[in-house]
Design a protein around this nucleic acid. Structure first.
Lengths: 225, 225
DNA sequence: TTTCTTTTTTAGGCTGGCCTAAATACTGCG
DNA sequence: CGCAGTATTTAGGCCAGCCTAAAAAAGAAA
C-alpha cells in the first residue's frame, strides 16, 4: 500500500521537476516541511521499492520512474478535480480549495474520482488554471509566459495563477485577475519590476499597478497587439 | 492533535457502549480489527491524555469521558453527514457509502461539514436511518424494536437498518426495505425465527420470507394494528 | 590545487501504532 | 472454595516517518 507520505513525496518531486528541472534533497525538504535528513531516508526507500518509484543516486538528486510518475499524476488528478469540485459544487473560494484538497486527495476512491469527474463534465483545468490530468493520466502543459515578462502594450488571457498563497489569491480575485480574464499591460516602470495592468477587454477597464511578487505568479497567453 | 486511530477508538467505544452497554477490550479489538493487546495499550494512553478521553480501570472495561464523547460524536456526525451527501449529491447507493465515509470522516474540515450540512438542509438521518448528531452534538436515539421482535399482524415503518453488511443492504434495497418503508408481518413461523413480511402499505403488496439474520438488522417503528 | 562553504548523508534516537507470546486476573462451575 | 477457562495485561519487538548532530562529499573561489 502506498502511504500518504509517499504520495506527497512523489507529488512534490513531480512538481519540482517541472518547475526547476533538477530536484535536490534540500528543495524537497523545504517544500515538504521536513528535515533534509528525512528526505534522504525516504528517497532511499522509494528507490528500493519494487517497482522502483524514483531514480536516486546519492548526491545527485532524484527523478521519478514511470511507476513513480504514474502515482504522482494520480494524486495530482485527485487534487485538482477535488479543488474544482469544492469550488463548483460546494461554493468554496479559490483560495480555500487547496488546503482542503490536500487532505482529501489521499483518501478518495477511484469511484469518487469518477463521479466528480463526470459531474464536472471531465474538466480540463482546476480553479487556478492548472491542467487536470486525464483519466489516462495525460497532462496538457501549456507553457505560457509570466505576466512579468510581457512588454508594454501586450495583452492576453490569464491562463494560470500559482496557487501557493491564499492571501495573494484573494487579492487577485478582487482585482478580477482569474483564469480567462483579459489583461493588457498599459505601462511598465523602469527596470521592469512594476507593471500597470488593465483588467478586462475594454479600453476603459480598470487599471492596477502590480509589483514583481504578483506579476511573477500570473501566467498569460499572449493574444492581441 | 487527535490521530485517526484515536478517533476510531473513540467512535467504536461509543458505538459499543450504545449497543451492548459494557465495552470490553476484546469486543473493541474485534470491531477495530486489531489485537487485544493493542487495545490495552491504546486505552492506557487515552486515559492518560489531558483532558482524559476515557475512564479506564484495568480488567473493568472502558467508558468515554465527556471529552471523549464529544470527539466520538463529532466523528459520527462527520460520518453520517458524508454518507448522506454521497448518496444525495453523488449518487452512491446505500451499501457503498459507509466505506467511503470511513475514510473521509477523519479529514474533512469544519467548513466542509457546514457546507454539506447546509446543502442537505440540516438532515436528521443518514441513508440507513441512523440519526445525525446536530451541530451542537445532540443525538436523537429513538429506540425502535427489531423486525424480528414484531408479532404476526403488526405493522410499522422501517426506521433504521444496520449498516454493517453491504451485501445485506443490497438485498434489502431490492426488497424495498429501506427507511420509511411500510412493513407488515403477515406470518411468523414456529419458534419465531422466520417471518413473512409484506413490504408496502397495500394489502396486495409483495410479501417476502425473511430469516433471523435479516430481521434482526431491521428496526421498525410500530404503527398500525 | 587547495580551501572554504554548502549540500547531502550517516548515525543514533524518538513516537505512534501495531504485533506475538507469556503471564496474570477475573468468573463461573463443580 | 478451588480450579478451569476466558479475558486481559505485560513484556518485548517491529516498522514508518520523523528528528538532531556530526561526518562527508561536492562545488566555488582563490
Amino acid at each position: 500500500m502506498i502511504s500518504e507520505a509517499v504520495e506527497n513525496y512523489l507529488k512534490m518531486i513531480y512538481e519540482l521537476q517541472n518547475e526547476t528541472g533538477k530536484v535536490s534533497t534540500n528543495a524537497l525538504a523545504e517544500k515538504l516541511g521536513v528535515a533534509p535528513a528525512s528526505v534522504t531516508g525516504m528517497l532511499k526507500k522509494l528507490a528500493e521499492e519494487r517497482p522502483r518509484l524514483v531514480n536516486y543516486e546519492r548526491h545527485h538528486g532524484v527523478s521519478l520512474t514511470p511507476a513513480g510518475q504514474k502515482i504522482a499524476l494520480e494524486v495530482i488528478r485527485h487534487h485538482r478535480l477535488i479543488e474544482l469540485y469544492l469550488q463548483q459544487a460546494l461554493g468554496y473560494s479559490w483560495d480555500q480549495v487547496d488546503a482542503e484538497a490536500e487532505k482529501l486527495e489521499h483518501v478518495i476512491s477511484e469511484d469518487f474520482e469518477d463521479r466528480i469527474d463526470a459531474l464536472l463534465g471531465q474538466p480540463e483545468f482546476d480553479p487556478h488554471g492548472d491542467p487536470i490530468p486525464t483519466k489516462g493520466l495525460q497532462l496538457a502543459r501549456p507553457d505560457h509566459p509570466r505576466l512579468s515578462e510581457l512588454a508594454a502594450g501586450q495583452s492576453g488571457r490569464v491562463s494560470r495563477v500559482r496557487d501557493d498563497d491564499p492571501a495573494l489569491l484573494r487579492y487577485l480575485a478582487e482585482l478580477g485577475i482569474i483564469p480567462d480574464a483579459t489583461l493588457t499591460v498599459a505601462g511598465k516602470a523602469p527596470f521592469g519590476d512594476t507593471l500597470s495592468v488593465r483588467v478586462g477587454a475594454e479600453s476603459d477597464s480598470p487599471s492596477h499597478t502590480l509589483g514583481r511578487p504578483v506579476t511573477d505568479q500570473v501566467f498569460v497567453e499572449i493574444q492581441g497587439k
